[in-house]
Amino acid sequence: MLPKEGKELHATSRQSNDLTDLGRLIAEALRGELGDTHRTIKTVMRWTGASERTVKHWVSGTHLPSGIHLVLLARHSDAVMTQFLVAANRDTLLVGMELSAVKAKVLKVLHLIDGIDGD
């Protein structure tokens, strides 16, 4: 018989809900960025090396990617990285991501301008 007071044996419902929400948010991010087609499944499989069934669970939001798979998804998907940072309460880091994206676009425009000036 277990005592009525003391350490909890299981994650609290708040922690469980947070993980469920993260799984749903990652699924929405993947579908929003890649669409809701079989090509999405194949793309995520290529990114992560995970099986088709596993990726289908992620895209449907019923399972949460763990460990290296979450890192690989964040490496390839800005939307997944954004959701991960928001879930970790580190959304202030999003400004750095946005600045990096803007810098890349400015550099691309500068190369286009240089190409026009070189003609």
Rank of each mutant, 00 (worst) to 15 (best):
M1R: 12
P3I: 05
G6P: 02
G6H: 09
K7L: 14
E8Y: 09
E8H: 11
L9M: 14
L9P: 01
L9I: 12
H10K: 15
T12L: 07
R14A: 13
S16M: 12
S16H: 10
N17S: 13
D21V: 12
D21Y: 03
G23H: 05
G23F: 02
I26K: 01
A27T: 05
E28N: 14
A29K: 00
A29T: 04
L30F: 04
L30N: 00
E33Q: 10
E33I: 02
L34W: 07
G35H: 09
H38Q: 14
T40H: 06
I41E: 00
K42T: 11
T43Q: 08
V44E: 01
W47L: 05
T48I: 01
S51M: 03
R53I: 08
W58M: 03
V59Y: 04
V59W: 03
V59D: 01
G61R: 04
T62F: 08
T62W: 11
H63W: 06
H63L: 13
H63M: 11
L64P: 05
L64S: 06
P65G: 04
S66P: 10
G67H: 07
G67L: 03
I68T: 13
I68P: 07
I68V: 12
H69V: 02
H69P: 10
L72S: 05
L72Q: 09
A74H: 01
R75L: 08
H76V: 00
H76M: 02
S77L: 01
A79R: 00
Q83E: 15
V86Q: 01
A87P: 00
N89A: 09
D91C: 04
T92Q: 14
V95W: 06
V95G: 04
G96I: 07
E98Q: 11
E98F: 11
L99C: 11
S100G: 14
S100R: 10
V102S: 07
K103F: 01
A104E: 13
A104N: 10
K105A: 14
L107M: 12
K108L: 10
H111E: 15
L112P: 01
I113Q: 13
D114F: 09
G115R: 06
D117N: 14
D117A: 15
D117R: 15
D117M: 14
D119C: 07
D119E: 15
